[in-house]
């Protein structure tokens, strides 16, 4: 009798969890998900991949590479909004390493935050685009992130907000997920390693990280360390 009750309670909890997940994800059609090319990473995401029609945030020093990698897995033109005042510029030949063909990329040099966020929003509302990537100077507040998310839902375009300094990590955000991609010491210069951490994900797991190695000759990614189901902070060596 006692064990039966426990089983029933388990079923109720599972059902409630599913309902909460459905509420959290809303009723918006996300137009499918983009596989990250690594089954372990995809498995951690509620839709088996990075949700299209949503905006994700990437922090860490390798955030740009991560975004290029995601965009490279999609088909179609990519809008990349950069700050005109930044000291470094996006370099076409460097995109190829991540499987993103430079000819697919439209680069917009925006003057200031307002224009950049506006350009991203315009891009996200344009369904012919595959992805919109942008690096707004400063942090993206709750209102701005909500606007971006709504634009992405309207246009069914995948958006990635880059935040390499990791600033604003704890500000409220309406974005779908937050990733932290940092370079990690590798054994070979041509096999750079990333530590990819999923810090937050709506309706999915969080606090996971993976060590990923990239083979620059083939363009393949491979997980070299098993995910640790514990907070990222505790996992830092």
């Amino acid at each position: 009798m006692g064990s039966e009750q426990i089983v029933r309670r388990g079923a109720v909890v599972a059902e409630l969890r599913a309902r909460i997940a459905a509420i959290e994800q809303g009723n918006v059609d996300r137009g499918g998900a983009v596989s990250l090319g690594l089954p372990v990473l995809d498995a951690a995401l509620p839709e088996g991949g990075l949700a299209r029609g949503a905006v994700h945030e990437a922090t860490g020093a390798a955030a740009g590479g991560f975004a290029a990698m995601v965009a490279g897995r999609l088909e179609g033109p990519v809008l990349w909004c950069v700050d005109a005042d930044a000291r470094a510029d996006l370099y076409g030949p460097g995109l190829e390493v991540f499987g993103l063909h430079p000819a697919r990329v439209i680069v917009v040099h925006c003057q200031g935050r307002t224009d950049l966020l506006w350009a991203m929003e315009e891009g996200l509302r344009t369904p012919v685009l595959a992805a919109v990537i942008g690096e707004p100077p400063g942090t993206v507040g709750l209102t701005a992130s909500r606007r971006l998310q709504l634009a992405a839902e309207a246009g069914q375009v995948l958006g990635i907000v880059l935040n390499p300094d990791g600033a604003g990590r704890f500000t409220a955000s309406a974005l779908e997920s937050r990733w932290r991609v940092d370079p990690a010491p590798a054994g070979d210069v041509t096999r750079p390693r990333w530590k990819i951490a999923l810090e937050r994900c709506r309706g999915g797991a969080q606090g996971l990280y993976w060590m990923v190695e990239r083979n620059e000759e083939t363009g393949d990614f491979a997980v070299v360390a098993a995910p640790a189901d514990r907070p990222v902070a505790a996992a830092v060596s």
């Binding site: 470094a88 190829e96 390493v97």
Partner: peptide, 13 residues
């Protein structure tokens, strides 16, 4: 050519 960087500084530092 060997792989190129993703970001190029506008002015080498």
């Amino acid at each position: 050519l060997p792989p190129r960087p993703l970001h190029l500084l506008k002015q080498p530092e």
